[in-house]
Design a binder for these strands. Structure first.
Length: 96
DNA sequence: AAGTAAGAAATTT
DNA sequence: AAATTTCTTACTT
């Protein structure tokens, strides 16, 4: 049962959360967009990892981060949950 | 300490 | 559309 402790945010996560938190409510951003803010558009995958390890999903609007092609991308919890959250903010998901 | 494996994408051809 | 590329973190040895 080697459970992962130290769920503290890593230096990289800290940077990702700073950008994600900056996203205005009601708008969606893509992983690449966040990655670009970090200085490297190819960090998209690392960004997704950081969000997955999100220590405060209630605080970090990880549901506001979607894929670049308009897809919802992924979500640790139920996928429909993400769609509902976005709809609650007035975001219309064109692609599924 | 070093190496290996996996991950919620993006990019390029 | 398919394959490749890229970065980070976690676990194992």
């Amino acid at each position: 049962m080697t459970r992962r402790r130290w769920e503290q945010s890593t230096p990289f996560e800290e940077r990702v959360y700073a950008v994600v938190r900056r996203i205005p409510r009601g708008q969606t951003r893509s992983y690449g967009w966040v990655a670009r803010q970090l200085g490297n558009p190819r960090l998209a995958r690392a960004v997704g990892q950081a969000l997955h390890r999100n220590p405060d999903m209630r605080r970090t609007p990880c549901h506001r981060v979607v894929a670049a092609d308009g897809s919802l991308g992924g979500y640790a919890l139920a996928p429909g949950r993400k769609r509902a959250l976005l709809r609650s903010e007035g975001v219309v998901v064109l692609k599924i």
